[in-house]
Amino acid sequence: MAKITYVEHNGTQHVIEVATGLTVMEGARDNGVPGIEADCGGACACSTCHVYVAPEWVDRLPKKDAMEEDMLDFAWQPDPVRSRLTCQLKVSDALDGLVVNLPEKQI
Rank of each mutant, 00 (worst) to 15 (best):
A2Q: 07
I4Q: 11
Y6T: 13
G11A: 05
H14S: 07
V15A: 05
I16Y: 05
I16K: 14
E17D: 11
E17M: 14
E17L: 12
V18L: 12
V18I: 15
A19N: 12
L22G: 03
T23E: 02
V24R: 08
M25N: 04
E26S: 09
E26D: 14
G27Y: 07
A28Y: 05
A28L: 10
N31E: 08
N31H: 11
V33G: 10
P34C: 11
E37F: 00
E37I: 13
E37A: 05
A43V: 14
A45R: 15
C49G: 10
H50N: 10
V51G: 01
V51A: 04
Y52W: 05
V53M: 03
A54F: 00
P55D: 15
W57E: 00
W57D: 00
W57Q: 02
R60I: 15
L61G: 06
P62W: 03
P62F: 06
K63C: 00
K64D: 02
K64S: 06
A66S: 03
A66E: 02
M71V: 07
L72P: 04
L72V: 08
D73W: 09
F74C: 11
W76L: 11
W76E: 13
Q77H: 12
P78C: 05
P78M: 04
V81S: 09
V81P: 05
V81K: 15
S83E: 03
S83Q: 02
L85I: 10
T86L: 05
C87H: 13
K90H: 14
K90L: 15
V91I: 15
S92R: 09
D93F: 07
D96T: 15
V99K: 10
V99M: 13
V100C: 06
V100Q: 07
L102Q: 08
P103G: 01
P103T: 03
K105M: 08
K105G: 01
